[in-house]
């Protein structure tokens, strides 16, 4: 433990033996990415809190006393004196099994298939989940919806192998503003968004909202409901701002 440093204090640590500057408490994964190291990850995004669900961003951390441990880096706080080892034989072995498990969950996902090929994941050993919605339960959509958008429209339901990401009671949720943030962050693109006849549908959540038409171009650009949500949330702005798509405001 590095109690002598308050969170946010500058610390030095090592990556593969080489010294680096970091900030105590920062996400190790983000710090590694910032320094240009490649560590695969599916459930992390800088805009939201770390969750540690996909187990892909494994690294081997050597602490000050020389003890080695395998850990995910997204939720590991950068701290003084550690040495972070990437791609050690243990990391590679466990990451491969993790990818094999993920691929069995979302066997059709091109993103996962590419990642699995890149890491030499053996195929055909595990029974793939044929009924899968290609969702790997990374929880990114839920965190974006709650922490960034503030809509709280979706959540995990049930537990263990029955766990699912869904709307309350699997029904169309009026809290959803069809902003599409969940669609954007989804690593396996299993949520889906469709726009037709002046309406936007978030396929997986079964939410359809009419789109507002831009006064400048006459084209539909965003759900009317979403505009109202932000008009209320931001407050005090000239209501005319919301009648045009962003480039024409």
């Amino acid at each position: 433990m590095s109690e002598q440093h308050p969170f946010g204090a500058p610390v030095t640590f090592r990556i593969g033996g080489r010294p680096y500057e970091g900030t105590y408490g920062d996400s190790l994964l983000e710090t590694l990415h910032r320094y240009g190291y490649e560590v695969p990850s599916l459930c992390h995004h800088e805009a939201v809190s770390a969750y540690g669900a996909c187990r892909l961003c494994l690294v081997e951390v050597v602490d000050k006393r020389g003890r080695h441990k395998i850990t995910t880096s997204c939720n590991f706080p950068v701290q003084a004196g550690i040495d972070v080892l990437l791609d050690t034989p243990d990391v590679v072995r466990h990451r491969r099994v993790v990818l094999e498990l993920l691929l069995a969950m979302a066997p059709r996902s091109p993103e996962l298939r590419a990642l699995a090929a890149e890491h030499d994941v053996p195929g055909g050993r595990l029974e793939p989940d044929e009924s899968a919605e290609d969702c790997i339960l990374c929880g990114l959509c839920e965190r974006v919806c709650r922490e960034v958008v503030g809509a709280n429209a979706i959540a995990m339901s049930a537990r263990g192998t029955a766990k699912r990401m869904t709307t309350p009671y699997d029904a169309e949720n009026p809290a959803c503003i069809a902003c599409g943030a969940c669609v954007y962050v989804c690593p396996t693109r299993c949520i889906g968004l469709e726009e037709a006849d002046g309406k936007r549908t978030i396929l997986r959540w079964g939410r359809t909202l009419p789109l507002a038409v831009c006064q400048q171009t006459g084209r539909a650009f965003t759900p009317q409901f979403l505009l109202e949500h932000y008009a209320k949330k931001l407050g005090g702005l000239d209501e005319k701002v919301f009648r045009k798509a962003p480039p024409y405001r």
Binding site: C54, A104, L137, T161
Partner: peptide, 12 residues
């Protein structure tokens, strides 16, 4: 059955 289902290694 009793796994919370949060992380891939335990659940899957």
């Amino acid at each position: 059955d009793e796994s919370c289902g949060k992380c891939v290694t335990c659940r899957e």
